[in-house]
Design a protein around this nucleic acid. Structure first.
Lengths: 210, 210, 210, 210
DNA sequence: TCTTAACCGAGACGGTACGTCCCGTCTTTTT
DNA sequence: AAAAAGACGGGACGTACCGTCTCGGTTAAGA
């Protein structure tokens, strides 16, 4: 979780795990109150009741701290079986939109992505902490649809993975763009249209490799 | 273009129009060299051979300046008629991906969007300067496809607009997510799959309103 | 006076002379309240109602600032003609002792001298601002004594200068050592003994060169 | 020697005496390398191969540590009988000047004196460890000169002590001022002049009390 | 021999000050 | 009135040390 792994030595005073959690909580609170660009390391330290040095001992900079603070929120997303692929998609999209409406994520997500365009370690951290972890939802939804017979069974595994990635980029990208760039609500109608587009289009994509 | 409109008085020394263009060019150059987060107003002023006051007389802050500097690049996107809806989509997606590969836009776009989540005037400026201007591409593509008979003619105008918006969010969102978040290449295969998904799904969306 | 001379350009906003004096006064006040070692640049800036940057624009570090703040106090020393060499010496020694009793000088003088042992520019600044300026007192006293006939007229000018320097080091050194190292009072008795020693010994030194 | 006397309990692990000497040596080495103001407790601990806690268990702060580290050097001063008061004075002055040329003492002596102006315990420690211990040299020199008949025998013991103190302040003060403030060499000529001044002046001081 | 109390190294902790960078504003002279 | 120049008050940065505090482990006297 922390950026700077302490040496695996057993000597010396161990790091306080309470400080860890206090810092991450304080970071989320500061994101809510101030937004990403006005969040300062000193302010977070103050809110957490911790010295600035304690903060820098764990995270090299604001971006890595924010990624860790926000990442955990994305693990709340779930994919309950609602009986049909379209229903599953609509449910997860609404969940994701609700997550993006939270002020912590709304202000932080695009900011760290922007920073990551010039910071490879940060990019890797985002991928590991947030992006890759959510692909599980696409996987689960696709497999469930295959079991239901809504989608054909796998043939070429690379094609399947490429399609999974495409669906992930389309869903996540569309919701983020709607919510943050277009800045318009992700309501039931919009979600219905999006999921209809996906379900309808998936057949065309499946026949593409043949 | 400029943020602060001067009084319409004709007295006094007129503003230098050369300064305007020099500043915007300098901003793009600074974005390339430094990225959004390390770009400073002082540095831009220095590159443009201009005093900081001259800069602030025109733009209130870094974000508005960057939006103006980058917006013009998005007007390069075009939609030549390639004979089919799928070909048109593939072409514009590749163009958009190429634009996002440019270091100016790559570092700036997500950054200003992130800032805009807490800054309504900036959000409006982005919408006016960048977002809404590109919806023309979706409009043009859809109409052309209708003329070709690839898509049914309009019935309910609000449904049409909602679908246009959806397609816009899906295309733009997916490309941005692929390029900046997933950080993987927008290559021919991926574009082919995306456009197949869209063309295949559009029928399903069209029948939704009935 | 200031450490960092601005370019002799006439362009731009000129430096505030009020800031100069406010900073030096604040420095002396901080020396009185906190002493040299607890004096901080931030505190001085705060007392002066000035930003830290304004302070650093003028002085590179605490030591140079303190030298300038204290130097002016040494210019208060005078040498009124009291009729005899011994009386003149006693008077200036008492004045010097009174100056060293002031908390500003007491805490600052030895501190900057200590720092100057590893900082040649500072050493030069102390010499120019404080040390050399006070040699005038020795010169004036010696000339007056020669006019009175208490001391022989000059013969070898280098000998004269060497003797002046010796007397300066002896007087200044003895008073400083008494006041700060031995930490005992420079009272009338002690001063009388010191001046007797000097007046009595000067004859022996004068005949040394022969 | 150490600042914090442990309880006189005989139980528990006794303090390492090797640590004591290692710390003092490390302190002198650090003074040579870094000077007083850049010397840090952590650095000294590192050089001594000792934990910071071990250091603080013995000395309360940097100043007391430095006084102890430097004090021992002053005990090297000796006063061999060279046959005349003037020769004895010249010898001890040259010794003292040589001591002040050593980088450890040069940087440390004035610094701790400066600190002592606002720190009574430190002042007392300096007096006990350094100042008073060197007055023995003045005492020995004066007695030897009295035995030789160069100086009159004692009459009033308080006058004698006052004169001893005066001579101590004059010699020590003059040498320190010459070496550190004027920053000029304490060479044979200067020493000859100083000792001539003293020997010549001592008679005048002696007759003062009558 | 076994406690046991004080020692030791390592290093994290809450803090303070540092000197730098940039902000957005202001004052000055020049155009 | 706008321009270049640059000083201004202010805020945050990331670093260096401070002196304290926990750790696990060591050491020698006393039971």
């Amino acid at each position: 979780m922390c950026s700077r792994t302490p040496r695996n030595s057993r000597t010396g005073r161990p790091r306080s795990t309470e400080a860890d959690t206090a810092i991450l909580e304080a970071t989320r609170a500061a994101l809510v109150d101030l937004g990403w660009s006005k969040l300062t390391m000193g302010d977070v330290a103050g809110r957490a009741g911790v010295a600035k040095t304690t903060l820098y001992r764990r995270w090299a900079n604001k971006n890595e701290l924010v990624v860790d603070a926000v990442a955990v929120l994305f693990d709340e997303l779930e994919l309950p079986d609602l009986g049909s692929l379209q229903a599953d998609i609509e449910h997860v999209v609404l969940q994701f939109a609700a997550l993006l409406e939270r002020p912590e994520t709304k202000t932080a997500l695009m900011a760290v992505v922007a920073e990551s365009t010039r910071d490879a370690p940060l990019r890797e951290r985002i991928r590991a902490s947030i992006v890759d972890r959510q692909k599980r939802l696409v996987l689960a939804g696709r497999r469930r649809a295959q079991q239901r017979g809504e989608l054909p069974s796998d043939r070429d595994p690379t094609t399947v993975e490429a399609t999974d990635d495409l669906i992930f980029d389309v869903i996540a990208g569309a919701v983020v763009h709607r919510a943050l760039v277009s800045a318009e609500p992700v309501d039931g109608q919009w979600v219905a249209r999006l999921s209809a587009l996906l379900v309808g289009g998936l057949g065309a994509v499946a026949t593409l490799g043949e």
